[in-house]
Design a protein around this nucleic acid. Sequence first.
DNA 1: TTGTACGCGTTATCAC
DNA 2: GTGATAACGCGTACAA
Lengths: 358, 358
Amino acid sequence: MSNTTIKDIARICGVGVSTVSRAINNHPDINPETKKKIMAVIEEYGFVPNDSARYLKRSESDSIAFLVKGISNPFFLGMVRIMEQFTQKKNYAAILRHVDDDQDEVSVAQALVKERKLKGIVFLGGNFNHTPESLQQIGVPYIFCTVGNEDEFQMEGRPRVRDQVRYANVAVDDLAESEKAVLYLIEQGHRHIGIITEGLDKPSVGQLRFLGYQKALRERGMAFDPNLVYEIKTKSAERYTRENGYLGAQALMRDNPGLTAIFCISDVIAIGAIRAIIDSGRKIPEDVSVVGYDGIDEGKYCVPRLTTIEQPQSEMAEATIQFLFDMIGGKRQPDNLLMPAKLVIRESSGSGYRPEAG
Amino acid sequence: MSNTTIKDIARICGVGVSTVSRAINNHPDINPETKKKIMAVIEEYGFVPNDSARYLKRSESDSIAFLVKGISNPFFLGMVRIMEQFTQKKNYAAILRHVDDDQDEVSVAQALVKERKLKGIVFLGGNFNHTPESLQQIGVPYIFCTVGNEDEFQMEGRPRVRDQVRYANVAVDDLAESEKAVLYLIEQGHRHIGIITEGLDKPSVGQLRFLGYQKALRERGMAFDPNLVYEIKTKSAERYTRENGYLGAQALMRDNPGLTAIFCISDVIAIGAIRAIIDSGRKIPEDVSVVGYDGIDEGKYCVPRLTTIEQPQSEMAEATIQFLFDMIGGKRQPDNLLMPAKLVIRESSGSGYRPEAG
DNA sequence: TTGTACGCGTTATCAC
DNA sequence: GTGATAACGCGTACAA
């Protein structure tokens, strides 16, 4: 039977429930022999305490939660690993949860705070689209990490949430970094630079990186050509896919005979683009240069190796978790932390100067 | 304050707690106006019911859990998505949880069964190393999917768990499939086939696939050469990495001048191997052929495209979840389901016949 | 060192 | 339609 409770164990052992409880929780005030006997019975009957009851009873617990938005991003999972280790060293319990794309992570957070008496929360991924009210109701320190920053969005005169609630945020400056990537391409002599992006119609990292692309062009006095923009519009949740990169590069090459470079807002997209370029018979980087964004492992091994904006994964993870614990300890106020990313030049990009025919 | 309870809401609204409960849970027997008023107060105070208390009270709930072992395997996550949809159609709730590598998934399952009153469980990933006792204590139908099969392990006379507990299992026949891959290479004329594998000292898919490799050689009367085996021995949890594939291929090429093919027990490893081969100045597949195992998306886009054993991801997911619901409904007994995989020949493999010098 | 009794926050079962 | 009240399983004062 699966419904064994602590009472059953107590009855079987001929002791009180509190004694059984003490045995389970390694309390000091218990006769070693009694404990041994109880543990044996627990083993025999396969008794497992009901966590709901435990958490309900517990008034507080040293634990923090990692809420990852969007399944299966290897970049986040690497960060989670680092943060979990840190958490463990602080003798806190780490709770890792995925949040579906159509779920509101702040609601999940609120429920978890109540249920597990969290001390703090780290939000990973997704875009910032929360109301000041919902944020205020979280009730424990929290921090956003690698979440699309709201600051540079085109907000139609809507007041910034940041001005109403002080929330903590650790991120790379998406706009500035993608600007950096495109400036690099321009300096290499590229004059027809395509971009594969997504989410232009809403606050998103895609939008931010697109704005950086535009800014770089403007800065160098280059005209913006909508023809050079491929926007991924898949309905499905997963948009950062190789397939979309493949499709995007195909379309850009078809519509722009003079194209010599493509900036992709993610490495995975760039990998797909590379495949399409090669399949079209063009060479990388001789005919077309490709630059990605993220700095994932795959980009170091693909052929050719990918030039990319590398996000400082471990630094971000450490800064985030340190910040959270500082807030929990009352040693620091919520703040906006911008981390510097690095342009890593590898084999997928090169000069944009062409012998020129026309 | 974050400690608002249903009682507080009731008091504020001037109603009883049961009325509030009815409002929250969309019960029919409630005055629409009362409900509206209550919902407004709940909204205002940001009240969130405590899930621990809910689950504690609830005697049963139509929900099943997906326990994924090992963080971040895109293959599992694709399957989970399919199974979640199926679950939703059956009007069951799906609970997705990660299990750390050093955690026992069966223990986690037991706790979850108690806490959330599960109807069934799907275990994904990891190796089968459970005792009959622990399995029997789960108490609800469960099924292993893509879990290292125990059947072909070298068990040193230990009785098979399968003979003591009838557990359900859906998997690809790792041994037979990798045998298939190696037979293909032999038929292509390869006579010096390396293997990059892992976990030879313990029951694992690595061991199984290695056995398939050996069997293929034996079958074709080819001698087994330990020199052609590279075993990944990293301490860290992650062994299926590009880096390990890179290192493995380097070592194999160094130790075997006549090497013309490498079989890798996973696609990710194969991708790393490809990079090492190219870096060494060799051509794929002209000089060295590479075959992977899994059928991940990355293998369809890498350069060259990867020849691999493709596991039937969606078929496995569907078979698994269907089987679980059949068991829940009492319509089917636990059983062992072997799914057929497919050898997909792409660009990374070719003929092993060489002009021959020596 | 051990046992009894209460309460954690919620839902379900009753009466009203 | 609504409001008391008894569980759910556990931890913990407190008494013994």
